[in-house]
Structures are given as C-alpha cells and as structure tokens.
Amino acid sequence: MRHLLSTKGMSRDEAILLLDIAEDMADVADREVKKLPTLRGKTVVNLFFEDSTRTRISFEAAAKRLSADVINFSAKGSSVSKGESLKDTAQTLAAMGADGVVIRHPASGAPHVLAESGWIDAGIINAGDGTHEHPTQALLDAFTIRRRLHGGAARGKGLDGVTVTIVGDILHSRVARSNLWLLTTLGAHVSLVAPPTLLPMDMSGWPAESGFDLDAAIDAGPDVVMMLRIQQERMNAAFFPNSREYSRRWGLDDERFGRLARTTIVMHPGPMNRGLEISSAAADSAGSTVREQVANGVSVRMAALYLLLSGDREES
C-alpha cells in the first residue's frame, strides 16, 4: 500500500487484509513484550494542522509499538501558522527523512495533495481531512464490529448483512463518509439519520438510505448504532435550533436506548457529548464499544503503518 488516503476505492480484499493484520497486532498487546521491532529505523511524522490529541496519541502509540521513531509536528504555534505553506512543510519533513507522514488537516483533500505533489516521497496516512474522510477511524470501527460479532474467529470475514445506522452530523462528518464506503464494501447495509440540514445536499451516489426519523431507525432493529459527535458551533449556524431540541429528536437517550435489542452494538468515535447525542446509560452499557474503539484504534493504525512502510516503495 503506497498511501492510505480514503476508504472509497479500497477493495474488500485490501480491507480484510488490513483488519486481519490488525488482529495480529491486537494479539501483541496481550504479550509480555508489547512491542515489535518491525519499523526500527523508520521515522513517522504526525503532522497535525488541527488539534486532535486522541488521534495523535493513537498513531503515536501505534508507531512506537512498531519501534518507529515518532516526530510530532503540531502546526499550531509553529511556522505553519505564520504562513508557511504545505509545500514548504512537506519539503522540510522530506529533508528530515520522514518515511511516513500521518496528516490531519482542516482542508478536504490536503493528504491527497501531499501524496500526489512530489514534494515528499513518504507514505501518507490521512488522519482526517476536512469533512472528507478519516479512513483509520472507519477501519477501527469495522474492526470493532467484526470482533464483537465474530470474536476470535473474525479473521478473513467481512460484515456481510450487518445493518449499521449512523446518526448525527453526516454533512460535516469525515467519519460517516469513510464508514459509509468501508462498511458497504465489507457487505454491511448502512443507513444515515440526521436533521435535514445536516445531511449532504445530494447523496444520490451514496450506497446508503437516509432519513430524518431516529425512532423509526431504532425500531428497525439495527445491529449497530453509531452516534456522531455534534459540534457546538453548528448551533450558531442555524443547522438546528438548540441542543435540547437536537437531543430530543436525534439523541440516543435512555428511552431510545431501552428500545434497542440487548445485542445492539452502540458506537461513538469520541469525544462524546454525554446527554446531547448519547446518554450516559447508553455510553456505559454492555453494548457500548466506546473504550474498545480506542484500544482497537492502535491495532488498526499499527496495521496501516506496517502495510504502508513495508515493501518496496515502487509498489503502488
């Protein structure tokens, strides 16, 4: 794998291979020595143009467990915020010998630009670009669902026939986009539930149903309910009136949670707004995978780093 920029266009075989390798990586966490020498001598740069401590430390842990050297480059307060271009930053990292760059950027497509630019030869992992994609989050979500459903026999399997309902700010969610492509590639059925203002204007090309009614979606009995974080700033832009109304119509509150089957998997990419999009009872329930998602994130990112940084660079 030359780069990991999106889940759109990722084949089923590629996705399953990555998830299977992540299973092997997860096994390492149970060992006495939780570290592999695989990427010894390789340098991974976490290039973050947006604050995201969770994602950064997940990638950092993944790279370190594979023995890579990790450099954290936060664009805030650096020369980047003083007007240095992405090009100059990339060339600086290239000069420092970065083998892999994990990039988080507020502009959709920035990782793609970095990968295609010729400014740097490193493998690029998209750690979230604008409102476009966040492929490793989707991979860890798929990994988490697959483990919940198949346990130790998960290797080699897809998510065929699994019904997943994603609820919340679909419009601005890179997590929703990456999950949409990945989960459907793995055979799942995805439906999206959101206020009309928070659904993209034209989803004709999306392999998903969409609707506005969370109660109907709950009563349809999905295998997985994925709640997205609602950003406070949306309230100021007339996407919905206020948090109380949002919570009442589109929040997974105790009553709605109680109507879900006990086997339903409840997911949230974090950080959660408890009491807004998800109630504490739902977030802390046995069906909740919130903490597993964090642990699995490291395994999936180890797998991604391995696939990116092993093999000849000529490989495409």
């Binding site: 794998m1 096994d27 695989t38 093999g311």
Partner: peptide, 18 residues
Amino acid sequence: TMYRDDLGHTRTRTPSRT
C-alpha cells in the same frame, strides 16, 4: 514477519497468526 530484516527490500509480506 514483523521480525524480518528485509522490510522494504521485498514486496509487503502478509503476516500469519501467532
């Protein structure tokens, strides 16, 4: 697989289960 010394010299190897 994760302990090999030829990483980057051959195609990516698919690990097997331990």
